[in-house]
Amino acid sequence: MDNPSKTSELDLLNTRKLALFGILAALCLAIQLTPRPPNVEFTSFLAFTVGLIFGVLDGALFGCFIMFINGFLSPYGFAGLNMPFQMFGMAIAGILGGVYRRLMSEQVHSARFCTETAIVGAIIALIFDLITNVGVGFQFFLAGTDFALAMLTAIAYGVFFSIIHIFSNTAVFGILTLPSIKTLNDLVGGEKIG
């Protein structure tokens, strides 16, 4: 038989995790639906954070879920055919959070952690934009444009938005990850970072 005190600790952890998951999802959607400059977003940061705290699977699910809801409610209109691409792109943000957690050394210096997460933020923005631009290119292709031209056009015309996204993500990840992780770890009770 299991130790009852251990089981209730686990239940408490799961409840806290679920509540936190819900709060983060709500926060994420609220930010997504708030008017803001194009491609300045906090969803990938939160998906990455969830991945970092709860692991690869939870991070990926969180990313997918948020983009699914956002696909319907976005102020830019229904995502349509691009929705699966957005979900996949954001799942990668969550996955990278989990992967980063696994590769993280025992004792990480704050400045170094900020620099690393800033770089990861830039990579996430790049990958997400590449995937969603391929999605847009796919729509052009379905509308009758030649496949190579459709992809090239979508990627080329998305480049300015990608650059904004990369810069904003670098800043958001570099500045916000450390304090967020500390706060969330205190809430859920995980390993200490920084």
Binding site: L126, L152, A156, V159, F160, S162, I163
Partner: peptide, 9 residues
């Protein structure tokens, strides 16, 4: 990649 994409654009 960003610079190459810009150049491509």
């Amino acid at each position: 990649i960003s610079i190459s994409s810009l150049a491509g654009y």
